[in-house]
């Protein structure tokens, strides 16, 4: 599979703390790539660097061969849509108003008109399954509905690539699954390339075709869930041991009876 985003000699850090040192990054086109790693390993920082929210200390990121730093911030927003981990949004905005904010990059002319706004906003709300909530204020929604509304906002950007930073945090299990299923639909039906930071390794293995494990300033493992999730990696990166079981009819492993190595 061709790479849509490549990074060479990536070094990322702030305040003298180096998060990533001289690493190569490959994000395959049209797949769901999961970024995994322990807390503080730099998954979110890497995602923010791809979104050009954090700058690189050294190295270069390219989108289909073109350096990301060449794009203006508006151009970039039409190529990459980034959803922060816990976005700060006023609760009295309605879903439709929120989704319209996603169209910022398409506003043109002196007074910022957007001829496609209506159509695109409606389409984004349908895709994220929040069209029936259009006139509801955000603070009247459940956590899962709110997260889907936020995803609708990023879909209104009409970007080929979605960058999602822990979209399932603070959600209960049903809502986690509804967000992950939505992500899968967007990938399968619309061919979106998705890069997602996930904490739950079982969910990462199940929903991602490609995993990148971040640890100790390095991208320690890259590949399919089966290639990445090994006994060695679980021990050296996460400090746990588990039975790695491949469910019938699936090609990805799941962790059973996970225990920390310290207890063992």
């Amino acid at each position: 599979m061709a790479d849509i985003i490549t990074g060479t000699h990536l070094t990322i850090g702030y305040n003298q703390r180096v998060i990533l040192r001289d690493q190569e990054l490959h994000i395959p086109a049209g797949q769901i790539t999961g970024l995994i790693g322990p807390n503080g390993s730099g998954k979110s920082t890497l995602l923010k660097a791809i979104a050009q929210i954090n700058s690189l200390t050294a190295g270069e990121l390219q989108l289909q061969g073109q350096p990301l730093s060449d794009f203006s911030s508006k151009q970039l927003a039409t190529k990459l849509a980034y959803l922060a981990q816990s976005p700060e949004v006023p609760g009295d905005l309605t879903v439709a108003t929120l989704v319209k904010l996603g169209r910022y990059a398409y506003h043109q002319g002196m007074f910022g008109a957007d001829p496609d706004e209506k159509v695109q906003v409606q389409a984004a709300m349908l895709q994220a399954k929040v069209a029936d909530l259009a006139d509801r204020p955000l603070n009247s929604l459940s956590g899962g509905q709110r997260q889907r509304a936020m995803i609708a906002m990023t879909l209104a950007q009409n970007a080929e690539i979605l960058l999602l930073d822990e979209p399932t945090t603070y959600l209960d299990l049903t809502h986690q699954l509804s967000v992950l299923n939505l992500m899968q639909c967007l990938n399968r039906d619309m061919g979106k390339t998705i890069v997602v930071v996930l904490h739950d390794l079982n969910q990462a293995a199940r929903y991602c075709e490609h995993l990148i494990c971040v640890h100790d300033g390095k991208l320690v493992a890259t590949g399919t869930p089966k290639q990445v999730l090994t006994d060695d990696l679980l021990a050296s990166v996460f400090g746990v041991k588990a039975e790695l079981v491949t469910p019938t009819g699936c090609d990805y492993p799941q962790l059973l009876n996970t225990e920390t190595l310290e207890d063992a």
């Binding site: 929210i53 911030s73 980034y82 990023t154 960058l163």
Partner: peptide, 14 residues
């Protein structure tokens, strides 16, 4: 778009 946090606003192209 100033009502959003910086990361989200930048993600939208601001």
């Amino acid at each position: 778009l100033l009502i959003l946090d910086d990361s989200t606003a930048r993600g939208l192209g601001v």
